[in-house]
Amino acid sequence: MKKLLFGTRDKSGFLASFATYTLLISIGFIYVYPVLYMLATSFMNPSDLLDSSTKWIPSTLHIKNYADALATMDYIPSLLKNIHIALWPTLCQLVVTSMAGYAFARYEFPLKKLWLAILIFIIVIPPQITMIPTYIIYSSLKLTGNIQAFIVPALLGQGFRSSIFILIFFNFHKQIPQALIDAAEIDGAGHIRSFFRIAVPLSLPAIVVAAIFSFVWYWNETYLVNLYLGFNNSRANGGLTTLLLELQRFQSSYESIYSGWELSPNRLNEALRMAGTMLAIAPVMALYAVLQKQFVESVDRSGITGE
């Protein structure tokens, strides 16, 4: 009995594992608490919000919140524009960063140490330092206000967090045996061919990890999107937008659609805002539900902990 409760040297006892599970479950609950709160609130009708006895379970499923939020955010067009903004830079970034990672892993060349040091340095310096001059470069090249402001840096390996992806590819290509490349060379493949035919297919897991992270990070970026799309960019003149930008301007969009209703029961309430937030995070939540395993294993793959 005592053994069962307190365990032995080899096996942890019931009490210890009970404590672990309790802790994990309660911390897990704290973790998802904001999301649950958001979900519950988003279905409440105005009287539920005022009634302090309905804290968690709304009296009716007030779907109208979602309908209003969809209209306020102009959801489907915004969603498509957001995919546009996240997808193309991700693809460009993947090509360039995997090439750079491959070069670092496969070749010995002069100044290699210097370039690697620069790579690390770029991760550490805050992007705010370079933000202003790059903005000036882009605006003088007339890149701001459209997708090119994201594609051009991605093509030059300076997209959003590109350095981290170079590190991931560097580490992954290092683990591919040199013998494979040598064998290809003996069979007459050139450098470029052995990269595309051997290194790229073998690094598929790294590509998947980099692709989903890059996509999500572009999706979630708001500071740069705000800056590069510019101030006079708005839905009215058909500019690009992201769902998170729409969430930021939720209040003003709502007021412009339903103007003059400030005193009516339909004014902007927190249930509506929560519905908007839910809608803004819904696409990445769906992506996470499908690709969970890839996300979670990414850290192992990146080899950040050293082999």
Binding site: F104, R106, F109, W115, T130, P153, L155, L156, Q158, F195
Partner: peptide
């Protein structure tokens, strides 16, 4: 070939990091 694979990134470093700094 190493520098060829690195070329876009190096241009990026010079134009979008060193020069802006």
């Amino acid at each position: 070939y190493a520098y060829m694979f690195l070329a876009p990134w190096i241009i990026g470093v010079l134009v979008l990091v060193v020069y802006p700094l």
